[in-house]
């Protein structure tokens, strides 16, 4: 199990020979993915290219039905298509009682994170009364609270407005500067002042 890459950075995610077949179609095969600390990796591909499938495999949610193996994975934060935000709970409660099992600190810390995603003043409003974009923001507030090194984000920019996306991108860059790593899927391209490695699923398709 490699713990450092050739350049000496810590390897946070190492997957070898990944391949997925769905409905008789080989989506991709023999795909090696290595994500080192400080890296921002953009996973691209058309609809149905297998981005979400790959993300779930990399996160460890799918354990069968694919080739290859995830040889090494640091503790990760996974943001999927579903935001796990309960409409009956307030944004603050959603984070305080989050099922991801990470201690997010006291209410002041949580409120700060909510303010950072533009939900200042909505801390105690039941999430059912928030818009779809705001509910997604509740989930994105985890990016300001989590201390996991590896972030696997599946379409984090969906339903987020332009300013929100800009702030989110800045947060991703900050996380990488702090020694973390981000692997994300998006149809938008990231305009950040940092090297973004692009991984195109179509390039490795049959």
């Amino acid at each position: 199990m490699p713990s450092t890459s050739d350049a000496g950075a810590r390897v946070l995610l190492d997957a070898r020979g990944m391949g997925v077949e769905r409905g008789g179609r080989q989506l991709f095969h023999a795909l090696d993915i290595t994500v080192c600390a400080g890296e921002l990796v953009h996973l691209r591909g058309a609809n149905g290219a297998g981005k979400t499938t790959l993300m779930r495999v990399l996160a460890g949610l799918s354990r069968f039905g694919f080739d290859g193996e995830v040889a090494h994975r640091e503790r990760c934060l996974f943001l999927g298509h579903h935001s796990a935000v309960k409409p009956l709970l307030t944004p603050r409660e959603n984070l305080r009682w989050h099922p991801a099992g990470e201690r997010f600190g006291d209410d002041a810390t949580i409120d700060e994170a909510l303010a950072a995603v533009g939900l200042y003043g909505y801390e105690d409003t039941p999430a059912a009364q928030l818009s779809a974009g705001q509910q997604r923001r509740v989930n994105l507030a985890r990016l300001y609270l989590s201390r996991q090194p590896l972030w696997l984000l599946d379409e984090p920019f969906t339903a987020i407005d332009v300013q929100g996306v800009a702030r989110l991108q800045a947060r991703l860059v900050q996380h990488c500067r702090d020694g973390g790593a981000v692997l994300f899927t998006s149809h938008q391209s990231l305009d950040a002042d940092v090297a973004v490695r692009t991984l195109d699923l179509e390039a490795v398709a049959y």
Binding site: G60, H82, A100, G101
Partner: peptide
């Protein structure tokens, strides 16, 4: 059911506990 549909179960599975 509702926790499964909104992804909470995914998060629970990935939790270190």
């Amino acid at each position: 059911r509702s926790d499964f549909e909104d992804g909470s179960v995914d998060q629970l599975l990935l939790a270190p506990q």
